[in-house]
Design a binder for these strands. Structure first.
Lengths: 148, 148
DNA sequence: AAAGTGTGTAATAGTGATGATTACACACAA
DNA sequence: TTGTGTGTAATCATCACTATTACACACTTT
């Protein structure tokens, strides 16, 4: 599974915006923190904005902001906003229709996979960006304080 | 987050062996049912065998068999046997160490991701290959009966 | 013992998603 | 008006995954 890093970076972005407390952050600032390119950040911000999680201020002194309180943004919302492939991939080519197993295997395992996916999502719904930001702040106290 | 198709095909294989009831199935038979190549099947069987889920009989009339009752093989066991990447990928390049957010984000989100992963795994542990085989048999009753 | 069958693994190639990067039009603030 | 920053398109390289070919080896059957 080449899995994407988008989810982790998106949480990173939102956490950054949360600790920024109303001051807009430029994509370049976020890119520096996440150690990636500014365009990658803007691509993610585009998805997050579509999902109603962030908004942007254009022009000088602009940047991105949270569109709603960090406490209202669940990791599940972030996950849904930036991941676009199914959690479980099925057969690349559909199995043999005329086989006893091949013809029914998809329908037979789908319910179990759905339950697993829902369990994952339910757990991701329990944590908010505010929780992550608080944890970052707590951990930061044990590090040498450094400016952004 | 996307998984490879290995998990789905591996469940397919094991379900096939379960309904075969002790009669060895060749990798070519399984490949035909799963609509893929026999070498792909053998690669999966190699992993499943390492995990103690299947065993092989060499020579004429040989093939693969379940190494333990289908009721004892959980989807979680299959998942663990054939998937080798982490469910959640983190940053491709480590984030900025000297940032308040970048330096702690990994540690801050890891617990939440672990909880989500465990929830998924717990759910996958509830279903066995025997359950899937029974479901395939049940669904088969509503289809036109066809030979293997 | 010989012949044939099927597994196990290496090697190679094609495919698709991902992330990095360049480029540029546009909107807004100062 | 000028400068700043966003938004998006277009490439490009990389990597995992699957398909496929090839072949050595083990075992069963005769």
């Amino acid at each position: 599974m080449p899995t994407s890093t988008r989810f982790a970076v998106a949480v990173h972005i939102l956490t950054g915006l949360a600790v920024s407390e109303g001051k807009p952050l430029r994509s370049e600032d976020l890119a520096w923190s996440a150690n990636t390119g500014a365009v990658v950040i803007r691509g993610l911000l585009s998805r997050l904005s579509d999902a109603g999680l962030t908004r942007s201020q254009l022009g000088a002194g602009g940047g991105s902001l949270l569109a709603k309180p960090a406490k209202k943004i669940r990791l599940l919302d972030v996950y849904a906003a930036v991941e676009d492939t199914e959690l479980f991939s099925l057969h690349r080519t559909p199995p043999c229709e005329s086989c006893a197993v091949g013809g029914n295997i998809i329908a037979a395992i789908q319910p179990a996979l759905d339950r697993a996916r829902k369990a994952l999502e339910a757990e991701l719904a329990k944590t908010t960006v505010a929780d992550v930001a608080a944890e970052v702040a707590r951990l930061g106290k044990f590090s040498i304080p450094l400016a952004w």
